[in-house]
Design a protein around this nucleic acid. Structure first.
Ligand SMILES: [Zn+2]
Ligand SMILES: [Zn+2]
Ligand SMILES: [Zn+2]
Ligand SMILES: [Zn+2]
Lengths: 146, 146
DNA sequence: TGCATTAATAGAAATGGTTTCTATTTACAT
DNA sequence: ATGTAAATAGAAACCATTTCTATTAATGCA
C-alpha cells in the first residue's frame, strides 16, 4: 500500500515525503470527510513540527491530482475525502456525521452530451453532490424524538 | 413587475424595502452572476448610504426563499443569479464571462429515488452544476489563437 | 556515495471575503 | 397616529485560507 501511494505520487511528479504519505494514510483510514485543520491535528501526533499551510498545500495538490476528492459543503469550507472507488462517480454526504457514500449511478455523460449539443459550450467540470442525513443519523434522530 | 416582487417578498414574510427591491432589480437586469460586492457597487449608484452587510443579508435571505439562486463557484466565493425559470432545473455557468444558462434536463428525480432506496438516507439538498466556457467565450478564445 | 537542483516545508504574517455587533431607522399592522 | 418588530449603516471583528521567506529535504545523476 505504501508502494501504491509512492507510485501515485511519482506519476503526479510530487516528491514522496513522509508528511505527504502520512496525510494520505490519515484520510485513507477515515470514513468521513475531514477539514485541513482536522488533518493537521492528526498529523501533529506523528510529527513534532508540521505547519498548517503544508496541509492545505498537500490536500490541494492531491485533489488536483485526483488522488483525493474535495467535498462541496454548504458552509463553503474545505473538506477532503479519500475514495477507494477509482471510477467516475459522485457522493452522498451526511451533513450530520460526515459520512460519505458513493453514488455509482452517474447520469452525467448524457447531460454533458446535451450541454455540448444544445449550448455549444465546453464543459470544464461538473459538481454533483447529494447532501442529507445518512441512514444511521436518521435512526439516531428518530430515537431522540421517541 | 414591482407588484410581483412585493407579492413574493410578502409570502416570505420579508418587508418590502426600497433596497430589497433594488437588489432584486439589479440581479434581474443582469445576465451574469454577481458577487455581493458587485451588487453593492451597483446599489450605491441609487442610494447614498447603503452597507455591504445589508447586501449580504438580503442576498442570503432571497436565496433561502428561492427567489434567487446561489452559484457554486470553484473559488468558493458567493455569487448570486436571478433566474426567470420557475421550475426545478440546474445551471451551466461560464467561468470566463459568468453567463448562466439553464439546463432544463434534470435527472435528479431518478437519482434521488435511488439514493433513498439504496442508501436509506434523507436527501436534504443537492448540487448539480456544470462549469465551463460558453459558446461565445469559446469563439472569442478561438479567434485570439487564430 | 556525494553533489546539484528543485521541490517541500515551518513559522510568521497577511489577506480579504464574510459576519457580527449596536444604535438608529423604517415598514407596516392596528 | 402609534407601537412593534424587522431592517439598516457603519465600524469592527472574524477566521479560514493564503502568501512570504529562509531553511530543509528528496531526487536524479556523476
Ligand atoms: Zn450521518
Ligand atoms: Zn466515492
Ligand atoms: Zn462565457
Ligand atoms: Zn435557471
Amino acid at each position: 500500500m505504501l508502494r501504491d501511494f509512492q507510485t501515485v505520487l511519482k506519476k503526479l511528479h510530487l516528491k514522496v515525503t513522509p508528511k505527504r504519505l502520512a496525510i494520505l494514510e490519515i484520510l485513507k483510514n477515515e470514513s468521513v470527510y475531514l477539514s485541513p485543520e482536522e488533518v493537521w491535528r492528526k498529523l501533529r501526533k506523528q510529527f513534532s513540527r508540521v505547519g498548517l499551510p503544508t496541509v492545505y498545500r498537500n490536500l490541494e495538490e492531491l485533489a488536483q491530482g485526483d488522488v483525493i476528492s474535495k467535498v462541496t459543503h454548504p458552509n463553503r469550507q474545505l473538506y477532503y475525502y479519500f475514495c477507494l472507488n477509482p471510477s467516475h462517480h459522485h457522493h452522498f454526504i451526511c451533513l450530520s456525521c460526515r459520512t460519505v457514500e458513493d453514488i455509482d449511478f452517474c447520469m452525467f455523460r448524457e447531460l454533458e452530451k446535451r450541454v455540448k449539443q444544445e449550448l455549444k459550450g465546453r464543459v470544464v467540470s461538473h459538481i454533483l453532490q447529494v447532501n442529507g442525513l445518512c441512514k444511521k443519523c436518521l435512526k439516531k434522530d428518530g430515537e431522540s424524538h421517541a
